[in-house]
Design a protein around this nucleic acid. Structure first.
Lengths: 202, 202
DNA sequence: GTCTATATCGGGATAGAC
DNA sequence: GTCTATCCCGATATAGAC
C-alpha cells in the first residue's frame, strides 16, 4: 500500500527478505521474489546482478540489524542478574518480531559454515570479552561460578530453541498458534527464573 | 568397500541420507545422490519414482530411528533426577553420532510444517503423558514445581541447540573442531548440573 | 535390474526496445 | 529504470536397449 513511497531497491530487498527467510536460498525463486515485490524479474538482476548477490545483501542486513541489539545489552553496565533479565527479555521480544530469522540464519550457516567467519568482529562483537565478563560476574556475591562458554550456550539455547524448532515443539505441546505466541512470551519470565535458580548459591 | 554386500535400495537410501541431511531437500541433486551411491541416476527413479518420494523415505527412516530412543528413556520407571540424567546423556550421545540430523529435521519441518502432524502418535510417543509425568514428579520431595511445557522445552533447547547452531556457536567460542566435540561431551555433565540446580529446592 | 540416450521443463541470466 | 523476449543450462524424469 505504501509501495509507491519506497525505492525499487528497498522494495526488492523487502520481498527478497520475506521469500529467502521463509524458504531458504535454494528453494527460493527469483520469479517469486519479483512477484512479491510487484516488479519484473529482470529488474532483480539489474539491481543485484545475481541471485547470490541478492541473497548476500539480505543476509548481511539481517545480521547487521540484529547484532547491535545483542551488543548493547551485553556491554551495559549492570549487575549480572539484571543483565540476564534484560538479555532474555530483549532477545525474545526481538525474535517475536522476527520469528523466522533464527532458523533462516542457522540453516544458511549450516549450508555454508565459512560465511560467518569475521562478521562478528566486523560488527564489533567481542566474544572473549563477553565470556570474561560472565566469568568475573559469576562466582561473586550470591552466584555460583559457572563455565562461561556453557553458560552462554545454555542461555542462547533456552531463548532461541523454541523459535527454531517451532513446528515440532508446537505439535508436541499441542498448542494453537495463539497459545504458542503466549507460550513464547511466558518464556521470558520462565527462563529468567530457571537460570537464576541454576546459578544462585543455596 | 562393503558396497557389494548391500542391496541397491539400501545403497541408495544411505547415499540419499547423507546428501539430503547435509544439503537439505532443495539443494540436493539426484545426480549427486547417484554418484554417492555409485549407481546410475535413473536407478533412483526406478526404486523411488521421484525425488520427493526418495526424500520421504529418508525422512521417515530418520524419525523412526530416533523416536524410539527418546520413548525408551521417557517411559523408564526412574526417579526424576535419574530420568533427567539418562535423557540428557543418551540424547547427546545419539546426536554425537548424528550431528547433522536435528538441523536437517528442523529445517525440513520449517519448510513444510504439516509434515510432522501425526508422526509422533504413529511412533507411539504420547506428549500428554510425558508432560503429566513431569508435572507429577516435580513438586515432590526435594524438587520445585515447574511448568512441564516450559521444562520440556528448556531441556530440549539445552541439549539440541549447540548441535543445530554449531557454526555460530563454534565461531563465537573460538573452538577447533576437536575442542567443539569435547565441549559437546562436557555438556552432558554441565546440563545435568544446571538443570538440577534450577529445580532443586533451596 | 541396470545402463544410455533423450525428452521436457524450470529457472537464472542477458539482450535490447522503450 | 523498467519492460518483453529469449537464451541456455541444469535438473527431474522417462523411453528403451541390454
Amino acid at each position: 500500500m505504501t509501495n509507491e513511497l519506497k525505492s525499487t531497491e528497498a522494495l526488492i530487498l523487502d520481498a527478497a527478505r520475506t521469500i529467502f527467510i521463509r524458504k531458504g536460498f535454494a528453494a527460493s525463486r527469483m520469479q517469486e521474489i519479483a512477484d512479491a515485490a510487484g516488479i519484473n524479474k529482470s529488474l532483480l538482476h539489474y539491481y543485484f546482478r545475481s541471485k547470490e548477490q541478492l541473497f548476500e545483501a539480505v543476509f548481511s542486513r539481517a545480521l547487521e540489524n540484529f547484532i547491535p541489539r545483542v551488543k548493547n545489552i551485553i556491554e551495559a553496565e549492570l549487575p549480572l542478574d539484571q543483565k540476564i533479565s534484560r538479555f532474555v527479555e530483549t532477545y525474545i521480544d526481538t525474535l517475536l518480531q522476527n520469528p523466522y530469522l533464527p532458523a533462516f540464519v542457522i540453516h544458511e550457516l549450516n549450508m555454508n559454515p565459512g560465511k560467518f567467519a569475521g562478521r562478528l568482529k566486523n560488527a564489533g562483537l567481542k566474544p572473549e570479552i563477553i565470556l570474561q565478563n560472565i566469568e568475573e560476574e559469576t562466582g561473586r556475591e550470591a552466584f555460583l561460578k559457572v563455565r562461561p562458554d556453557h553458560f552462554m550456550v545454555n542461555l542462547l539455547g533456552l531463548v532461541i530453541f523454541p523459535f527454531i524448532a517451532r513446528p515440532v515443539v508446537q505439535e508436541v505441546l499441542q498448542k494453537t498458534d495463539e497459545q504458542y505466541k503466549t507460550f513464547l512470551m511466558e518464556r521470558k519470565e520462565q527462563i529468567i527464573q530457571f537460570v537464576m535458580n541454576a546459578i544462585t548459591k543455596t
